[in-house]
């Protein structure tokens, strides 16, 4: 998925590469069950090719495809790891939709997080990238500073933020206090937990920012010069040149980070007491709820069905994204595919 988007982004359609290939290697690009060539050398070529990729193939078959299909089957059973694995049909799915209140809570929490964090982080990354694309002295320093949070990651950062968001002694509320605002209890008030996490995510927009910056630097200056001649101001230039030119990156960023945001887990697990999803279940995200079913209650059947529902849900959303992407993404060089 990512790869194909990357290809679109760079403007080289996968088809063209095949055409340009020299005739010799054409055989090896086919699959072994399609071989028609009777030459012995060709067969040997094939074989050694597969030999070389066999570790990966075996890995895919046994370590990815196998467990994947197994979990699909498990989602129709009451598997509990040790003693039972009875086929229960659609019971798990029925339970999910009709009996499990927390399923809906967790789905809502996750959607809330995705709906707010994706637009905000994307806009934030673009904004910072544009700022960092100015030609002033010491820009390398600023670029490093803004990218730095993206390098730091994981539990240490969460702990840092837990300290910063502490209601009475945290840095955030202290600063708010200077301007006369009494900050909320952040991670301890069910109404503020999700905004707190979204806020935290904004801090590490550096990763996305780097992609945008790279693209911004490759925009031909001729476009801006032409706009200058036409008397465009900088706002015009941003909306009519810069923004359209970076839409492929925005598109790529939105799709990948949406998929990633749906899988939010660590933050809630680390930043809530006992990893239980926070006050009033306000940080019980979908994956956390699934994890609890799987590894606290050992209800693997139910957890697997939750996993498959999320998979289908993200799949549909991504297809939808790809479809509407055609309407607003601009590819330089023409065939707006």
């Amino acid at each position: 998925m990512q790869q194909s988007i990357m290809e679109e982004k760079t403007g080289t359609a996968p088809k063209t590469t095949e055409k340009k290939k020299p005739a010799k290697s054409a055989v090896s690009s086919r699959r072994f069950w399609q071989i028609t060539s009777k030459s012995k050398a060709g067969k040997m070529d094939n074989l050694s090719g597969y030999l070389f990729i066999s570790p990966w193939l075996i890995g895919l078959l046994f370590l990815t495809a196998g467990p994947l299909l197994f979990s699909l089957y498990v989602s129709f059973t009451d598997y509990n790891i040790t003693s039972q694995m009875n086929f229960v049909g659609l019971d798990n799915y029925k339970r999910m939709f009709t009996m499990d209140d927390l399923f809906w809570t967790s789905l809502w929490n996750t959607l809330y997080f995705v709906l707010f964090s994706i637009p905000l982080t994307t806009a934030g990354a673009v904004f910072i990238a544009v700022l960092l694309n100015q030609k002033i002295k010491g820009m390398k320093f600023f670029r490093t500073i803004y990218y730095l949070p993206a390098v730091l990651s994981g539990v240490a950062v969460y702990f840092l933020w837990m300290q910063m968001l502490s209601p009475s002694t945290g840095l955030v509320n202290t600063v708010l206090g200077w301007v006369g605002i009494e900050g909320p209890s952040w991670l301890f008030d069910p109404a503020w937990t999700k905004p707190a996490l979204i806020f935290m995510k904004l801090w590490s927009v550096g990763g996305g920012m780097l992609l945008y910056l790279a693209r911004l630097q490759s925009i031909s200056t001729a476009l801006y010069e032409a706009a200058d001649l036409d008397g465009a101001n900088s706002i015009h230039k941003f909306f009519y040149i810069t923004l359209p030119m970076i839409t492929p990156i925005i598109f790529f960023d939105v799709i990948t980070s949406t998929i990633y945001a749906f899988q939010i887990f660590q933050e809630a697990y680390v930043m809530t007491e006992n990893g239980d999803g926070g006050p009033g279940n306000s940080l019980l995200f979908y994956n956390l709820h699934m994890w609890k079913n799987a590894f606290e209650m050992f209800d693997m059947g139910y957890a697997s069905s939750m996993a498959w529902f999320l998979f289908v849900f993200i799949m549909i959303l991504t297809v939808f994204n790809l479809k509407i992407g055609k309407k607003w993404v601009y590819y330089e060089g023409g065939d707006n595919k």
């Binding site: 837990m162 300290q163 009475s168 209890s185 301890f188 007491e273 006050p279």
Partner: peptide, 10 residues
Amino acid sequence: VQAFEAEFSS
């Protein structure tokens, strides 16, 4: 209550 909890939850 929340403010107190925040102080000792670590």
